[in-house]
């Protein structure tokens, strides 16, 4: 073939400018490898075209540079994503660090909530514990009191007087226990009306027809004691409770007798 004619046919320019057909392109590529003159002609045209277009350059708007580089997203971690994005459904992949950060925040919130609720629970438990302790103290005190009462009542020498309500107070009822060896006197009030202010109940023993003062009963004593120890007495035929002025009286006010019973 005539290489010079081929070069001057316009095929070089057609090829470089992208105007040659597929067949012409393939032929040109084969021939330019075989004939250095063709390759040289190709390079010459490329260089002159390039030079012309470089002279014709139009500076793109300054903002384009940043815009283009942003659209490239050239950071290395994104290259793999860039290359596969055309073939995959564009599901946004989350950076592992973001996952980790999100997980940390959730964990932190969880721990904070746990600490908050734990603290509340702790306070609740502490309060409940205090209440229980108080109740236990009260119960223990009450139990030891009952224990003492039981011991007292277990004494084989104990005698009981059941004091029934008088016409003054028919619903009232009380028990007096007297130990024949120690001469101790114990009072158990089952039911008596609360005394009016400035008044106190007073226990009396009746021996040989005479009243003996066994002491006044402190108001509200029943909240802590089941059995109240009164004054000793050598012996008694009967016991009675009268309502007396604050501090008690030397002799009972008979018309204010609430209960009475024989030993």
């Amino acid at each position: 073939m005539n290489v010079k004619e081929y070069i001057l046919s316009g095929i070089v320019e057609s090829y470089i400018l992208g105007l040659a057909t597929e067949t012409e392109q393939q032929e040109f590529e084969v021939l330019s490898k075989q004939y250095p003159e063709i390759a040289q002609a190709k390079l010459d045209f490329e260089l002159s075209l390039e030079a012309q277009l470089m002279r014709d350059a139009i500076a793109p708007p300054a903002a384009m540079r940043e815009k283009i580089f942003q659209s490239l997203d050239t950071s290395p971690s994104n290259i793999a994503y860039q290359e596969t994005e055309e073939f995959e459904t564009p599901v946004r992949k989350m950076n592992p660090w973001k996952w980790l950060a999100a997980a940390s925040i959730i964990l932190l919130a969880g721990v904070a909530y746990w600490a908050f609720s734990s603290n509340n629970k702790y306070k609740d438990l502490q309060q409940a514990n205090t209440e229980l302790k108080n109740q236990l103290d009260q119960s223990t005190a009450r139990l030891s009191e009952l224990d003492k009462t039981a011991q007292t009542l277990q004494s084989p020498y104990l005698k009981t007087a059941t004091l029934q309500g008088t016409a003054q107070s028919p619903g009232s009822f009380a028990n007096v226990y007297w130990d024949s060896t120690t001469k101790d006197v114990w009072l158990l009030v089952n039911n008596m009306p609360a005394p009016v202010s400035e008044r106190q109940y007073q226990l009396w023993a009746l021996l040989d027809g005479k009243p003996i003062d066994l002491g006044v009963i402190e108001p509200n004593i029943w909240q802590t004691k089941l059995l109240v120890k009164m004054k000793n007495v050598q012996g008694a035929e009967a016991f009675a409770i009268t309502l007396e002025p604050q501090g008690g009286s030397a002799s009972p006010t008979m018309e204010k007798m609430y209960v009475m019973g024989k030993l």
Partner: peptide, 26 residues
Amino acid sequence: GGALYGIVKQIVSDGEIGNDVLQEVF
């Protein structure tokens, strides 16, 4: 960039669209 923008501008008359093309090219 300038030389390629030059050839784009000779084919596409609209400036905005020319900018889009330049971005696509790169």
